[in-house]
Structures are given as structure tokens and as C-alpha cells.
């Protein structure tokens, strides 16, 4: 999951908004009511949600595509079944979320086709972690454990989101993520308690994923990338915490576990500062992050190409299915 928003600028013209309607809307969300797709909402609420949820949804799918490559390479039948179930869940999450985005896009006359085309043209971004390569089976575990762990931190932060359809989708998604997290932990645990070689590939995998995990939550402030929608999403009660608070929550929950397995992170300065009450760590390379989210990451082109091939190769299926089924 993937709640980081890289572009904050509003590209659609703002409707003239009635201040009374706006106040009523704010009163509703302050009172904990849920906003539904056909309720009145301010333009920046709708547009912020479209960006957030379409990116979240498409990232689920972009993440499932490279993950499915591990199905034939899984070391045992049990692991194969486990990772297959996870891939299927991710595609399911993608479908749920795209539905939520599509209903929000309806007033603009946009559909799923626009989402897929925007992805292929580079206008719709997918999460930075899915631009990265995977090398060994340890990566399959690392993605399940720590990447999904980071996703769980961001997603649970939105379980009370003011937008009803997203909030309901997230309940289901988070419940399934618990299985993903434990599936990842099971792979990690086997490697961590395994041979020297297994421990080596695990450490090597963590070293490679570390910067991506820090980047997962996005930069602490908009100064880094020019813009960020975290403030508006907090104002509208979609999420509760800002990027840095989420990153700290992730480090709080996961670093002690990382260390308990005898693993290290590739940053000698990492420590918990009791006075500040937070983790101190070296910033990842945010310039690299900016490149990654512009689809200039190590695997961006290949992942998009995979999606494009699937879209083109399957167009005959869409054509065939668009006819009414002949009754038996």
C-alpha cells in the first residue's frame, strides 16, 4: 500500500464552492460521519482521494506482477501456495481500490481505461518500492515482512478515514495484510534460523531494501520533492499522521524485531534517541527517490512494460467477453 503522493498540484479547475456546503461537509467529518460517493464533497477532497486511491490501487497490481514471478521459484509446495494466495490477494486489493477511485472519477467522465492508460503513459504513478529489483528468495520474504509491514503502518492509519468506500475497502485489505505479514515472517524466520548462506542472503536483501523502506513513507516535508498532500489528507481526516510519524512508527515496531533476528541495517548511526523520543537515522537519497517516482527507477520500465504486454495480449479476452453469454 501506498499512500505517498508525489504530486500535490491540483490539475482540474476548482468549482465555485458554496461556503455553507463546505461547512456542513466539515461538520460531518468532524462528527465522524462517513462521506459516500454521491455526497457533496469539496473538489480538493475528491481530487486528493482520486490521486491517493488510484495510486494505491495500481500499486497493488504493480506489486503483484513482480511478486508472481516468485511463484514458480518458491522453494517448497507450501511456500508456493502461500505466495500464490498473497499475489491473488494483492490483485483483489487492486480491484477493490480501483472501484473506489472509479466512482470518484465518474463526474469527470473517467473510467478504468483512463487509469490503465495513465499508468502506461506515466501520468499515474506507482509506489516507489515496486520500481526496485528482486534478486533472491530472501527478497520475497523481505517484501512480505517489511514492505508489507510498512504498508500496514500506512493503511491502518487510515482505517477511520472519512471517505466511506475507502475506509470499508481498507478494513478488508488490512485484515488480509495480517496474513501477508505472517507469510513474510515465516519466510524470514526460516532463513534467519537457517544455514550461513541463508542468513547471508537475508542480510544482503535487507541491506538492499533499507533505503526503499525509509523512502516508503515519503519525505518528511514537501520541501524535498516540491509538493505533498499529507497536510490536506490529515485536514480531511483521511489519514491521522504525517509521513515522518508513520516512518517512526514503522521503525518502532520493526527495528527491534530486525535486531532480535541478529540482522543489522546498513546505517551505523541508527539509534533510538530517548530525549527526542524517536529513531535517528541517515536520510535516504531523496534525489534518487524523485527519479524513481518519475518512473526512472531500476525496474520502472520493465514493470510498466510487463503491464503493457498484459494489457495488449489480453485485449482479445476483453473483446471476446464483451459479447453476451449464450444461454445454455
Amino acid at each position: 500500500m501506498y499512500n505517498y503522493l508525489e504530486y500535490g498540484s491540483s490539475d482540474a479547475p476548482r468549482n465555485h464552492e458554496d461556503p455553507e456546503q463546505y461547512d456542513r461537509f466539515m461538520a460531518r467529518i468532524e462528527a465522524g460521519e462517513k462521506i459516500e460517493a454521491d455526497d457533496w464533497m469539496p473538489d480538493d477532497y475528491r481530487q486528493g482521494l482520486i490521486k491517493l486511491i488510484s495510486m494505491h490501487g495500481i500499486s497493488e497490481i504493480m506489486g503483484a506482477l513482480p511478486e508472481k514471478e516468485w511463484v514458480p521459484k518458491a522453494p517448497t509446495l507450501k511456500r508456493k501456495l502461500g505466495i500464490m494466495a498473497k499475489v491473488q490477494d494483492e490483485m483483489g486489493h487492486g480491484q477493490l481500490l480501483l472501484r473506489v477511485a472509479e466512482d470518484l472519477m465518474k463526474p469527470y467522465g473517467k473510467t478504468r481505461k483512463d487509469l490503465i492508460e495513465n499508468l502506461l503513459s506515466g501520468d499515474l504513478k506507482f509506489h516507489n518500492v515496486f520500481h526496485m529489483p528482486t534478486k533472491t528468495w530472501a527478497d520475497a520474504g523481505m517484501v512480505g515482512w517489511l514492505v508489507d509491514g510498512a504498508a500496514i503502518i500506512s493503511q491502518t492509519n487510515m482505517l477511520d478515514a472519512s471517505y466511506g468506500p475507502y475506509q470499508r475497502a481498507l478494513q478488508r485489505i488490512c485484515q488480509e495484510e495480517v496474513f501477508h505479514a505472517q507469510h513474510g515472517e515465516a519466510i524470514i524466520m526460516a532463513l534467519a534460523e537457517g544455514s550461513d548462506h541463508q542468513r547471508e542472503i537475508l542480510q544482503e536483501s535487507l541491506n538492499r531494501w533499507w533505503p526503499s523502506l525509509l523512502m516508503f513513507f515519503g519525505p518528511a516535508s514537501a520541501d524535498t520533492t516540491g509538493s505533498s498532500k499529507q497536510d490536506i489528507m490529515i485536514k480531511y481526516k483521511i489519514r491521522k499522521s504525517n509521513n515522518e510519524e508513520l516512518r517512526q512508527a514503522f521503525l518502532d515496531k520493526y527495528l527491534p524485531r530486525v535486531f532480535s533476528l541478529g540482522l543489522t541495517v546498513p546505517d551505523e548511526t541508527v539509534h533510538y534517541d530517548e530525549e527526542q523520543g524517536q529513531w535517528v537515522y541517515q536520510q535516504p537519497d531523496w534525489d534518487e527517490f524523485k527519479q524513481i517516482i518519475k518512473n526512472k527507477g531500476p525496474r520502472s520500465k520493465e514493470r510498466l512494460r510487463l503491464r503493457q504486454i498484459a494489457y495488449e495480449n489480453n485485449s482479445w479476452v476483453r473483446q471476446a467477453l464483451s459479447k453476451e453469454v449464450v444461454g445454455s
Binding site: Q95, L96, L98, R99, E102, D103, R112, R168, A169, R172, R318, L321, S322, E324, V325
Partner: peptide
Amino acid sequence: QFSLLAPNEEMALSM
């Protein structure tokens, strides 16, 4: 449960 997109009701049920 939720909504979904499908080309016809057979596919909708299966999805």
C-alpha cells in the same frame, strides 16, 4: 460486500 466491474453477469459472479 463491495462492487466490481465485469463485462457480463457470469463474469461478475465468477469475479
